[in-house]
Amino acid sequence: MLNVEGLTKEFGGVVAVNDLSFEVREKQIKSIIGPNGAGKTTLFNLLTGLLPPSRGRISFLDTNICGLRPHVIARMGVSRSFQNVEIFDNMSILENVMLGRHCRTSCGAVSIALRRRKAVKEEALIREEALRQIEAVGLDADPHSSPAALPFGKRRLVEFARALATSPRLLLLDEPASGLNMRETEQVAQLIRKIRDSGVTVMLVEHDMSVVMEISDDVLVMDYGTKIAEGKPREVQKNREVIARYLGRSNEYAKNPKP
């Protein structure tokens, strides 16, 4: 469903993503791994339109989405979470998730201001769907309270619920397990599986190898903006170059133990 060809992003003289090509098939979980600075988050920003690519082609459901603005891409069915959890502390948890429905609803200012029946009905549907997503991600918190006071793990769940509320076809998760304890990590892994099983294609960037190897259908290894390996988790684990660069306890890894 997602086809990336020759994607390149340069910042000044620095090449963050270099001639990258890959494919994501429907209903699979594809993980992107690689050391810090490999260009993984940049890749997500390119896929969601937050950054314009320097060269290359991204096609989503057979449509070229290169150069489209982020809100248009979101409307086409690409949603995401952020590495540092970007939820809106100036809204309640419920409102955060309700915002996710924004691109699936259409009532204009006039019908809302005049409380036309259409608008009232739509608002009720938004609320219903948001509550459903909050439940689906297993968030047990008062939906009317502010998310500001929530612990990090639950903030992440709010973000998941918000992303799911957009009814995405493709969900990009940027380090969904970072900052979580083991139990929370396991919950998130389960959740990602559940999301995939409900028919949503998932791409994730993750450093926790146990999560990646456990849930991925496909793994893409990046370093310095280029692809160095791609395949099933098992195959990638055996790949020499990957072991040398990243996974195994090679000298390089020993020098730089926190990839």
């Binding site: 939820i87 809204m91 409102e95 309700m98 200012a109």
Partner: peptide, 25 residues
């Protein structure tokens, strides 16, 4: 009416984080 609607939430999301608001459509 406006502030308690999808438009009101969209406005507040801009205040919260423009990037995230964008990515949410």
């Amino acid at each position: 009416n406006i502030i308690n609607s999808r438009i009101g939430r969209a406005l507040r999301s801009i205040h919260g984080s423009e990037t995230a608001a964008n990515a949410m459509g």
